[in-house]
């Protein structure tokens, strides 16, 4: 599904070239749940942004379903954002001027879904996340965990194949974090491909595969349910 080959990302300053990512080679199959880990500045978010078509690599190949997605036109990119992938952020990034309902509905409006269908779809999702009573509240009126749930709902309302989560639990305390991770796990069990960036070793374990980045280079790529503790030592 996702195929990255020799991806470089660097910035040129006067005297030197600073690499954020170097020779990244990564393949993600449909239905995978990948956790990307690494210290601050290791390039996790940049990698996620490149996968999410928010940032362009400086060199390398990137294709989705064997189709190169480098040098895509603006319109095609928007299309991928509307139909193929959803995003979750550490700071939730809900639109403050919109209610819970409207926040979840907005991607459908961009997709051009009819008003009636939109209502049904949003109602379904609100129901699933037990947020029907909160639909007319504004984001500031919700707890962090609830805000992130809205964030997830907004990300998946368009039924994307790929869910990209940039430290989805970073601003949450552990109980709420676990709730969010459980939700992601359920989504993955239903077949959605998920790539998350996280600092949290425990939450990384939810992934079926853990990738460790250091200084822009993939140091480890461990598949399966390998115990984290054994990797470290």
């Amino acid at each position: 599904m996702i195929y990255l080959n020799n991806i470089d990302k660097y910035y040129d300053s006067k005297f030197q070239r600073t690499f954020v990512l170097k020779a990244i080679k990564l393949e993600v199959k449909e239905g995978e749940f990948v956790s990307i880990m690494g210290p601050s500045g290791s390039g996790k978010s940049t990698l996620l942004n490149i996968i999410g078509l928010l940032d362009a690599p400086s060199a390398g190949e990137y294709s989705l379903y064997d189709k190169s997605v480098l040098d895509l036109k603006e319109k095609a990119k928007v299309d991928y954002h509307r139909n193929f992938m959803g995003f979750i952020f550490q700071a939730y990034h809900l639109i403050e001027e919109m209610t819970v309902y409207e926040n979840i509905e907005t991607p459908l409006i961009y997709k051009g879904v009819k008003s009636k269908d939109r209502q049904a779809m949003v109602a379904d999702l609100l129901d699933r996340f037990n947020m029907v009573a909160k639909k007319d509240l504004f984001p500031q009126q919700l707890s962090g965990g609830q805000q992130q749930l809205v964030g997830i709902a907004r990300a998946i309302i368009g039924k994307p194949k790929l869910l990209l989560a940039d430290e989805p639990t970073g601003n949450l305390h552990s109980l709420q974090g676990e709730m969010i991770m459980e939700t992601l796990k359920t989504l993955n069990d239903e077949g959605m491909t998920i790539i998350q960036v996280t600092h949290n070793e425990k939450f990384a374990e939810y992934g079926k595969r853990i990738i460790r980045l250091e200084d822009g280079i993939i140091r480890k790529d461990i598949a399966g349910n390998t115990k984290f503790a054994s990797i470290v030592k």
Binding site: K75, H81, R82, N83, T106, Y110, K111
Partner: peptide
């Protein structure tokens, strides 16, 4: 607000 909208599929 603009950034979010772009990410969730609003065009320029």
């Amino acid at each position: 607000e603009i950034g979010i909208k772009k990410v969730i599929g609003s065009s320029k």
